[in-house]
Write a protein that binds this DNA or RNA. Structure first.
Lengths: 175, 175
DNA sequence: CGGATATATGTAATGTTATAACATATCAAC
DNA sequence: GTTGATATGTTATAACATTACATATATCCG
C-alpha cells in the first residue's frame, strides 16, 4: 500500500469489506461483478488514491485483463455508475468509494439524482503531493448553492465538491 | 449571444464592464492585458458559457491571433491565474468570471490561497444542455468539508464546487 | 537613449485522456 | 437451446493539454 488516506487503518480489512459490499450491491441488482470490474475496484482500494484510467489499464494489461483503453474505461464507468468509485474531476482520475454507508436496496448511492432533496453530496480532500483521497459528505444544497439554484430555477443533478491541498504527511515533507 | 446565464440582462453592458474591470485589474498590477488575452476574455464574456480551449483557439485562429494550442492555453492560464476566468473541471472548459466583486488592490480573487480562512469559494451552476454557466459563491470551509479537513490536518488550497444540471430553458425544451 | 532583464508569443512536436464504431463472446431468461 | 441483453475485444480517432526552444516585445534602470 502506498498512500493512506491521512490516517492509519486496517487496510486489508477495509479492502475486503469494500469488495464484499460491492459484491452484495451487484448481486442485489442482478449486475455482473465481473473479473475486470472486481479487479479495477480492488486496485483502487489497494492504492487508496486517485489513479488515472491509463494507470489502471497498465495493471490490467500486465494481468491479461485487457490491453485497450475501453477495458479500463468500461470498468470505471460501471463502478462510478454504481457508486462504487468516484471520478475526481480535478485530476481526471478515479478513486474507490470510501464510504460504507450504502447498503443494498438503495437507488443512487449518493443522492446524485436530485441533490436538492437531501444534499448528500460526496466531497473529497485530495492531496496534490501523494494524490491520496479522503472522502466525506457535505450538505450543500441547503446552503448558498442550493439557494442560487432554486432562485434561478435550475435543477441540480450532480454536484462536484473537491478540495485540493496537502495532507499532513506531504505538508511535513515540504511539498 | 447564445446562452444567457438563465436570466435576462444587459449583456453588452455586462461585457463592457467586465472588460473594463479586467483592464483596471491588470493596470494596477503592472500586468499586460494584451490583445490575445483581452480577446479571449471577450469571447468568454460574449458567449456566456463554458468553452473548450480549442473552441477559443478556433476563434483566435480565424482572427489571426494565433494558430497553435499554446496561444489559447496561455491566455486562459493568465485569465484563470488572475481570477478573471475560471476553469470548469467537470467540462474541461473555461468560463469568464461573472462576479464583479473584486476590485483592484486585492490578493487572490477568490480566496484560493487558503480557503479555510473565509470560505470564499466560487461555485458554478452548469447546464448540461446549453453549457451556460452561472456563478455564485459558497461558504464551504465552515461546513462539513472544512471540519473534515481540520480533523485530518489537511490544508486546503483550492476548492472546486460545480453543480451540473438543467437550466430552466433546457429543462423546458425537454433535454 | 540603449542595453539588460523579464515577459509574451510563434512554432513544432508530443503527451495524456477519452470515445466511436463494430465484431465477437458470454450471460440470463424463458 | 434459442433468444435478447450485457460484456468484452479491437482498431481507429477525437479531444484536451504540455514541453521545448526560438523569437519578439515590453519594462526597467543607468
Amino acid at each position: 500500500m502506498t498512500a493512506l488516506a491521512f490516517d492509519r487503518h486496517n487496510h486489508d480489512r477495509c479492502i475486503a469489506g469494500a469488495l464484499k459490499r460491492a459484491e452484495t450491491h451487484c448481486g442485489a441488482r442482478r449486475l455482473q461483478f465481473t473479473a475486470t470490474r472486481r479487479r479495477v475496484l480492488e486496485i483502487l482500494l489497494q492504492e487508496h488514491r486517485a489513479m488515472g484510467a491509463y494507470d489502471i489499464l497498465a495493471v490490467l494489461s500486465s494481468e491479461g485483463l485487457g490491453s485497450q483503453p475501453p477495458a479500463a474505461y468500461r470498468a470505471l464507468d460501471f463502478l462510478v455508475r454504481e457508486g462504487l468509485a468516484h471520478r475526481i474531476e480535478g485530476l481526471n482520475a478515479y478513486a474507490a468509494c470510501a464510504l460504507p454507508v450504502h447498503g443494498p436496496g438503495h437507488g443512487p448511492e449518493h443522492g446524485q439524482e436530485d441533490a436538492s432533496d437531501h444534499g448528500h453530496v460526496p466531497a473529497f480532500l485530495i492531496c496534490r503531493g501523494c494524490k491520496a483521497v479522503a472522502e466525506t459528505e457535505t450538505g450543500l444544497a441547503q446552503g448558498r448553492l442550493g439557494a442560487a439554484a432554486r432562485e434561478a430555477g435550475f435543477s441540480v443533478e450532480r454536484v462536484v465538491v473537491e478540495a485540493e491541498g496537502l495532507c499532513p504527511g506531504c505538508a511535513g515533507a515540504g511539498a
